[in-house]
Amino acid sequence: MQIDWWTLALQTINFLIVIWLLTRFLYRPVRRIIEAREAADRKASDDAADKAEEAEKARQAYEEKRAALEEEARKTDAVFRGDIEAERVAILEEARKTAEEMLTKARDRIERDKDAALVALRGQIADLAASLARKALEDRPATSRDAIARAAAQIDELPETERADLLRDLDAENAALTVVTAVSLTDRVQGEWRKALSERFGGDIRTAFEVDPDILGGALLRYPHAVFDFSVAGRLDRAAEALEA
């Protein structure tokens, strides 16, 4: 067994050269490639993360925009509703005003019509009253003598049975025939009344005289159970009753 030292030295150098060769031309390039690839992977990963972030941002922006749009729509809706409400109120107000105006106008017209009607009615009433008064007064007894004549005429026209009834009533105790006039009568006129009445009912009837301004004119004969009315007031009352009927 022998060792060739030259060969040993040469092989040592050779192997060191192999190490240099492989390091220079194999390991370093491979490592560079691997590092570049890892960097590329990292970059791709980062890019993907960036893209994801961008997408997230875009999504958030979209969400915000959507929320803003919703808010706007809500506001618009509210404004719209407000407008509608305001319009409704305005229309109601206008309708109310119109109704009020119409009512006022109607009231005015009614008032005017009423006034006109009243005026017309007053005229009619005046006419009526005038005619009434005319009727009441047209054949009133102008004087006391006329009144006495009228009363006498009426008593004369009475049927016999009624006149007997009246007489019977007057014959009763304390019974009196009362003559009511608007103004107090003079003794002479009273005498004439007494004379005219005595002629018809006999001389022993009691005659009394009363003054009642309410009968306005004429005379009113009050028996115990009956009243003969020749007064202006009575005539007016009868005319009014005739009108009302």
Binding site: L10, Q11, N14, L21
Partner: peptide, 17 residues
């Protein structure tokens, strides 16, 4: 320097590499 067959073979291998 004596060049042995091993050294020559190594050189060939290095060349191929």
């Amino acid at each position: 320097v004596p060049i042995s067959r091993a050294v020559a073979t190594t050189w060939v291998i290095m060349g191929l590499l």
